[in-house]
């Protein structure tokens, strides 16, 4: 169930991609998403496919493991591609029924949209698969540091994120336990209409909130006891430092975007 989703999971492996600075990976993911939406034509698609395939290869994450994450969105993929297929007007009409039609542009659009979505999921999950949640929050904290100047509490937000990441599995387990305990007292979480269902959540949510608050209180005290005093004057066990690989990667990523744009201008065929 919840545990089967691979998006947001970390896949431990010893690869160049795993070792990259999280800021580089955040930047690269952003560029990659931009590329997915500006590319035009077969050449652009080819460049992106090569880029993605190369990185997946380098990351040492098994391709099978990545496609497992796609299963969760199969339904979404089918709906969007069917919608694009049937609702795009075009020059050549192959089939028509009422307002539904299949056209040359519809086919191209539908194929492109599916590719975009699949690539989007593969690319972004590659980032989470190769970056621990902690590195990710670290990366965000450092990348967003300039916002401190306009009074955005960047450190607190990052700390909150990493604590949330630590407690999500614990709270999922706890939900499971409380649910079972209430079911043992005859509670029914499945049947009934929407209002009844919402009502039946009360015996689950109240204990969950009580427990979350108790944990928060305990945790706050434990953090204070270990001299936590906000972000000021803190040092880091694993400070983010750019290495040679990181600078090269920045170059590669920028080059990649330039290539995609050039390809879109020079050979924008077939157009979507």
């Amino acid at each position: 169930m919840i545990r089967d989703i691979t998006i947001g999971q970390f896949y431990p492996a010893d690869s160049v991609i795993h070792k990259l600075d999280p800021r580089v990976k955040l930047f690269a993911t952003m560029i990659y998403i931009i590329a997915l939406f500006v590319f035009k034509g077969i050449l652009g698609l080819g460049i992106i496919t090569l880029f993605l395939a190369g990185i997946i290869r380098m990351s040492k994450v098994p391709f099978k493991f990545m496609t497992k994450g796609l299963k969760a969105i199969v339904l979404l993929l089918i709906i969007t591609s069917v919608f694009n297929l049937l609702a795009t007007p075009g020059d050549i009409v192959f089939w028509k029924w009422g307002s539904l039609q299949i056209t040359d542009k519809g086919i191209i659009n539908s194929v492109l949209m599916t590719i975009r979505l699949v690539y989007l999921i593969l690319g972004t999950s590659l980032m989470t698969l190769t970056t621990t949640p902690n590195q990710l929050t670290d990366g965000l904290e450092t990348a967003l540091k300039p916002l401190n100047k306009i009074n955005v509490p960047v450190h607190s937000i990052a700390m909150m994120m990493s604590i949330a990441l630590r407690f999500i599995p614990i709270l999922i387990e706890e939900t499971d336990k409380i649910m079972k305990a209430q079911m043992a007292r005859g509670a029914d979480f499945e049947s009934g209409n929407l209002i009844q269902k919402a009502k039946s959540m009360v015996p689950l949510l109240v204990p969950l909130f009580v427990s979350a608050f108790r944990r928060a209180e305990d945790l706050a005290m434990a953090m204070e006891a270990r001299c936590y005093n906000g972000g000021e004057g803190r040092t880091k066990m694993k400070p983010l430092k750019y290495g040679k690989c990181d600078y090269i990667s920045y170059g590669v990523v920028v080059g990649f975007l330039v290539l995609v744009i050039v390809a879109a201008v020079l050979l924008p065929f077939p157009q979507g």
């Binding site: 409380i178 043992a184 204990p207």
Partner: peptide
């Protein structure tokens, strides 16, 4: 079945109401 740390399942506003939950179901 009384679970481990069963006090974590209490949710009603009064003790009496909470005990009523089972038979009510």
């Amino acid at each position: 079945l009384v679970f481990q740390y069963p006090e974590h399942q209490l949710f009603e506003t009064t003790i009496f109401d909470d005990v009523c939950f089972g038979p009510k179901n």
